[in-house]
Amino acid sequence: MIYIIIAIVLGIVMIVMSIIAIHHKNITLAILSAGGVSLVASILYLLLAAPDVALTEASIGSGLTTIIFFYVLNKIKKHKHVEE
């Protein structure tokens, strides 16, 4: 029973975070919340008895994807700065 409540809370957090990721104007916040969706999803995988998938999602989906997004965003911002 407690697991069901935890899963519902995690799911609501994920939905709120993905709405922020899609609709927020500030793109840094959007990227961070998309990383947060992956991180919360990895806890959900743990509840679904899949520790392997949880480890992969936490290290790859949440960590490296966010870092690559930030590198590309930083590069685009720097480009814009040089233009102006």
Partner: peptide
């Protein structure tokens, strides 16, 4: 375009 790529990662998840 960055938002579209972000949505692709959400779709994946």
């Amino acid at each position: 375009i960055i938002k579209i790529v972000l949505s692709f990662t959400l779709f994946d998840t």
